[in-house]
Design a binder for these strands. Structure first.
Lengths: 167, 167
DNA sequence: CCAGAATACTTTGACCTCCAACTATCTGTC
DNA sequence: GACAGATAGTTGGAGGTCAAAGTATTCTGG
């Protein structure tokens, strides 16, 4: 369903905003574009990850653990890095644990903290899955390197203003 | 939630990709930036809409109806325009109907089709809510007009490749 | 030392998204 | 005209996100 429209719905919406004498149609188009682009990128990466029964969200958790040389991180730290709510991390680690890709282990000194540890299957899975994600061009196939860089730069400015990180 | 990190997690991830000799770190950063930017824009607009108990998704439905001069559209058409699954439209119209902002009416000639009609409350709500959304700069406050335009242009290219519309 | 504040995680519940399956209704073709 | 296939919408289920409340543990200031 939802086959290609004969026009760009975001351009059309922009014209309508102008017609309504609502200013900021420019900003609305930027915002709407972001929403739609996210939807596209997410579905493409999810598609590429389907063979491993992974979602983008769970894949990101695995990548983060893979980057930490020990393959072990506190749940809270992962939430900060991935900009996700605590409850979301709990949920994702639950599922990854059910899949046998991650294991919860107690923190050696702080009993409040739970660590997530990459299992051997988890480690090989993230390496294989990454090949598929890269092959899918991480969902931004139609952008040149220059455009990807510009995009990153502009969105970084947006993120910096959202208290995402100390700029 | 320990908010601002002392560094940009997306830049850091980019460094890690390089360190792993995974190419395409550039594309990964662009993709991740889109994901995060969407999260920011969504939460800002949702925040601005809170006084009307509206989500961005339901607000978009109202705007779309407002743009159609009659304030009436078939559910399927709205799904196409908003790039949403049929089931999502059903869900959103259910809630808008419960809020008294929209009413389902039968199509005059095609009994398969259901029309959504903006109620008087719905029409005044969308006008008021739009003022709040515009005041919040539609979630892209920190972008200049030029940046918003560049962003829109780049993402339009991405969307065009996703069969979103006939380019 | 100990009471209160801060931190870490889980649980529950509200939304939103998609897919797949199902019902009802048109449409086109023989 | 009848029937197969397309189209419109709803339902149910799986994920994912957040907020708020609850439990457990650690930290801190008097």
């Amino acid at each position: 369903m939802a086959r290609p429209l004969p026009f760009d719905p975001i351009e059309e919406a922009g014209r309508q905003w102008d017609a309504q004498h609502w200013d900021e149609g420019q900003a609305m188009q930027a915002a709407t574009s972001i929403m739609r682009a996210q939807q596209i990128v997410l579905s493409r990466v999810d598609e590429a990850l389907r063979p491993w029964s992974l979602s983008f969200a769970r894949y990101e958790v695995l990548v983060l653990l893979h980057f930490s040389k020990q393959g072990v991180l506190p749940l809270g730290k992962m939430g900060d890095r991935l900009m996700l709510h605590q409850a979301s991390i709990t949920n994702l680690v639950d599922r990854l644990e059910q899949q046998g890709l991650v294991k919860r282990v107690p923190h050696p000194t702080d009993r409040r903290t739970t660590l997530a540890e990459l299992t051997p299957e988890g480690r090989s899975t993230v390496v294989d899955a990454t090949k598929a994600v890269v092959a899918a061009q991480i969902g931004v196939t139609e952008l040149t390197e220059r455009e990807a860089k510009d995009l990153h730069r502009i969105l970084r400015k947006l993120r910096a203003g959202a208290d995402d990180f100390d700029a």
